[in-house]
């Protein structure tokens, strides 16, 4: 699905990712953990194609294609989804309109017809219900005035609608209450299939109790310094970064 080889990324002239290698196969769930400022979000943004995140060395291959050849919106069409650590507010744009535009954009990219308003409403209501979201949030402006947890749930709703091949979820568990964590985890698990992959970025072992990863990686200073199974996360939780790496 995704092959990252010796990746170096600069942001604002500073090298943040310093030789990172990672392979994710279809059907796999990987978790990346690491100290604040290690470069986890930078990696996520680079995969999504953010401007000004300059790849100076290395390659990213996605489904056999050079991912760096694609514009951000094309990557979405190709099946990549980024769940934001800090979802952005867009005043004046209704959540429904935003999501419908997104979904129809992806459909168009894949040669499918636009979904009618009625079909879309049915779909979005069902998905919102599964995430136990208040339907009023669909009509509000995108993320405007949403609580931290509501924003994260809104990200999950968008993921469910776009049904990506590769979901990169940047601290989707931060700021969630216990019930919300369970619900969001169910959402992530529902997205796990033989033909999909998930990259979780998290600080907490708790999420990994619900969404059991196949691999756990520890990222420090722009590199993956240690990889293992889910027991690595448990060890990390008990002993802290200093003694594990």
């Amino acid at each position: 699905m995704l092959k990252i080889k010796d990746l170096h990324v600069q942001v604002g002239g500073t090298e943040i990712i310093k030789g990172l290698t990672l392979e994710i196969k279809p059907g796999e769930t990987h978790a990346i953990m690491g100290l604040n400022g290690a470069g986890k979000s930078t990696l996520a943004n680079t995969i999504a194609g953010r401007d000004d995140y300059t790849v100076t060395e290395g390659t990213i291959t996605y489904q056999g294609k050079n991912l760096l050849d694609f514009e951000p919106h094309e990557r979405v069409g190709e099946g990549i989804f980024l769940g934001f650590q800090y979802p952005v507010e867009i005043p004046g744009v209704s959540n429904l309109n935003f999501m419908r535009t997104a979904l129809n954009g992806v459909r168009k990219y894949n040669g499918l017809e636009a979904m009618t308003a009625a079909d879309f409403m049915k779909l979005v209501r069902a998905k919102a219900k599964a995430l136990d979201m208040n339907p009023d949030m669909l009509k509000r402006f995108v993320n405007v005035g949403f609580s931290g947890g509501e924003k994260k749930r809104n990200e999950m709703l968008q993921m469910a609608l776009l049904d990506p091949k590769l979901a990169v979820l940047d601290e989707t568990d931060s700021g969630l209450d216990i019930d919300a964590l369970r619900i969001v985890s169910e959402g992530i698990n529902a997205q796990r299939r033989d033909d999909t992959s998930i990259l979780l970025i998290t600080h907490y072992q708790r999420l990994l109790d619900y969404v059991q990863p196949d691999f756990v990686h520890i990222m420090i200073d722009g590199k993956i310094v240690k990889s293992g199974g889910k027991e690595l996360a448990i060890e990390l939780e008990e002993k802290g970064y200093a003694s594990v790496v």
Binding site: D51, V88, I90, P91, G92, V93, A102
Partner: peptide
């Protein structure tokens, strides 16, 4: 804002659609 633009683009809008969406929101 770059953050708004990138957020829209990360949801499948091209740059012009992203600008249009944000500006339309601004003018709502």
């Amino acid at each position: 804002s770059d953050d708004q633009l990138f957020y829209c683009r990360a949801r499948g809008l091209d740059e012009e659609e992203a600008v249009a969406m944000i500006v339309n929101g601004f003018c709502k």
